[in-house]
Design a protein around this nucleic acid. Structure first.
Lengths: 369, 369
DNA sequence: CCTCTTTTTTGGATCGATCCAAATCTATTA
DNA sequence: TAATAGATTTGGATCGATCCAAAAAAGAGG
């Protein structure tokens, strides 16, 4: 009030002398105290309306930039989240991360993303780094082979953790994922309704919740359909290449399976390719169903029938759960389980009429589902 | 020295009273000063060997966790990097991010990853968030349509920026990418050597450096080969679906192109699918070359010939450049341009002998290149 | 006009590290 | 042995915000 700093301290002056505009500078400019400015920034209802607008004007005028680091030090809240996935190159995770971001954005959060590549050691190093950076919470898709005591460790660290897609350790824990068991059941039921009996599951080799649930679902559904005698599970990596290779081995068997359900879409796409390599037609010589319903699934030949697991929604739910946990660290743990939906396309169409050339059928298929 | 705090201040005691172990605690435990501990942590050569080991013992004993936020406040260095990409679901970026991480890891950095989805507005919001978090530098793959003044803005913000893959604004600026022009030339030359003349380029519609360079390369290479009269560039989105659709339109034309070079691999894979949908055989009815050489390229039918752009290396180089810039903000701007390499597979094999059934040829192709 | 609430504002302490000039401790040399 | 140089160590100030108890201002009631 005694001076009009808008003119006395020119930007040039500040540039040369001091690095950045601080609360103090704004306070001086607006003729109030540091604390009041802080309250305005945090949108406290305590400040009078007139003061608020005055301060906001000064903030704009001086081009102030909030220093979250400084705030974090005092308030011990960083507005920062750690996200650990195991295969960032899988489009599923692209979509999931987008879902996470969409929620974090609203909450003014920002995320550290790390790719464990399914290595517990890599994962551990990332977690330690994130600990130093004092993330408010963690979204963790645990790497294959992660020791269940990791959860205890994180609890000791005081780092809230929401597991995503896979889970380790004993309940209760926070978790967001899909009902994989139900997903596989949907796939099996669909195939059986189409007349298939020899249905093989191309699954993962790792022992974690997500493979277990799928295998359990397969097992139960097959039994429920009275097909307990033709169970077949192949275990291996869950990559495109693995799908490509294992289906070719599978097709050498007699009797051949007539349908294959895959752990994820990448495998399923690889499997379709493997069939083609053998001169077989996916969907006719052997039905294929994938899991995830990534974008590419609609863009294969034939378009892939897939159990949609809604990665974007999973990301959103996981992030929301993390926000809830941050707001209420002691609250009851939650498990958010989304319901998958079978997206039917053309990779398990019924056998074509005898006269019809199989290959020619694809052009009639619609790709837009 | 006067007391043995390892026993006097038990962990339980600290848990209840104070939140976390600080430098002060370690100093007391080791019988030295705060400052000395700080020097040890930063691996300063100033501290005597005996002191160093003593302090390190105390650090372990007390389970100290470095608080980077606090350090950042004082030292105004956050050990944090912003990374903005425009399509996280593209496996190319998965590999690139992995390359970035591998460098950051060594340097004890951690990265905020943001996905602009090619929206300048989204990008801008992320940048503002990262500014509040005071990232030490930015790795930016500018979203399509980004205003060139963004560079000025970032300079005003005092935020070092390394552009990646695409660049906007006027030199000098820091940049890491590939010689796309050369890449396309390699593709054209390869096709011409195989006897192709009607070579079409399936390119992007956006006006940025990466599309311009590719188009320029195509233009120059075609002219150099004396094919200036059969130029053909199709512009559109650079997605799998776009490749799928535009090649089908292209195949209606007369005379038909005999070869297509694509902006990226996703397009090329889509294009191969499009050919199949028309009942045409990729590589025989029409040759296809992609760009990037993502993992999936080796796993298509036929395996895709592609201009390898080495995403992992680009990520590494970009991150290294950022580290150099952080260490020396005023230094001369650098442009790191990697050399692409044509990875020949089977999507542009020469026309098969008359008697040979085209489709049967694929099983003989090796997928391992 | 004065007292009593209620609303709004404030300054000093604090978060946990680094910076830096000065103090201390060790050798070395005259 | 004292002076000097070099190697270590140190404490106070600082980074830029929040917390919180207390002060000041505004409004209500008699």
């Amino acid at each position: 009030m005694d001076r009009s700093p808008g003119t006395t301290s020119s930007p040039r002056d500040r540039n040369s002398k001091r690095q950045s505009v601080t609360l103090q500078d704004i306070a001086a400019h607006a003729g109030v105290s540091r604390s009041t400015v802080s309250l305005v920034l945090r949108e406290s209802p305590l400040v009078a309306e007139a003061t608020r607008t005055q301060v906001q004007t000064s903030i704009k005028a001086l081009g102030y930039v909030y220093n979250r680091g400084a705030a974090a030090l005092r308030a011990s809240r960083t507005f920062t989240l750690g996200v650990v996935v195991y295969d960032i190159a899988n489009p599923f995770f692209g979509a999931m991360v987008a879902g996470i971001d969409s929620v974090l954005h609203r909450e003014n959060y920002v995320s550290f993303l790390a790719n464990s590549e399914d290595s517990p050691e890599r994962q551990q190093r990332f977690l330690e780094r994130m600990r130093e950076h004092r993330v408010d919470a963690l979204l963790l898709c645990p790497a294959e082979g992660t020791d269940p005591t990791l959860l205890t460790q994180l609890a000791d660290w005081n780092m809230p953790c929401v597991q995503v897609l896979r889970h380790i350790g004993a309940p209760p824990f926070d978790y967001a994922g899909t009902d994989f068991e139900l997903g596989v059941r949907q796939a099996v039921d669909h195939l059986v309704a189409l007349g298939h009996r020899r249905i093989v599951f191309l699954g993962g080799e790792a022992e974690h919740s997500a493979t277990r649930a799928r295998h359990q679902g397969y097992h139960d559904a097959m039994h429920a359909q009275g097909l307990g005698d033709v169970l077949g599970i192949v275990r291996g990596p869950v990559t495109r290449r693995a799908g490509f290779e294992s289906i070719q081995a599978l097709m050498q068997e007699t009797p051949r399976p007539t349908a294959v359900i895959c752990h994820n879409d990448l495998m399923a796409l690889g499997a379709m390719l493997g069939l083609q390599r053998l001169g077989l037609i996916p969907g006719e010589d052997c039905a294929i169903i994938g899991t995830d319903d990534i974008e590419e699934a609609a863009l294969s030949l034939p378009p892939l029938t897939s159990v949609a697991t809604h990665p974007f929604s999973i990301g959103e739910e996981a992030a929301r759960l993390a926000m809830r946990r941050i707001a209420n660290p002691g609250g009851a743990r939650e498990q958010v389980i989304l319901t998958p939906r079978l997206q039917v396309r053309h990779s398990c169409d019924p056998i074509p009429a005898p006269g019809e050339a199989p290959y020619r059928r694809y052009p009639h298929a619609t790709l837009d589902a």
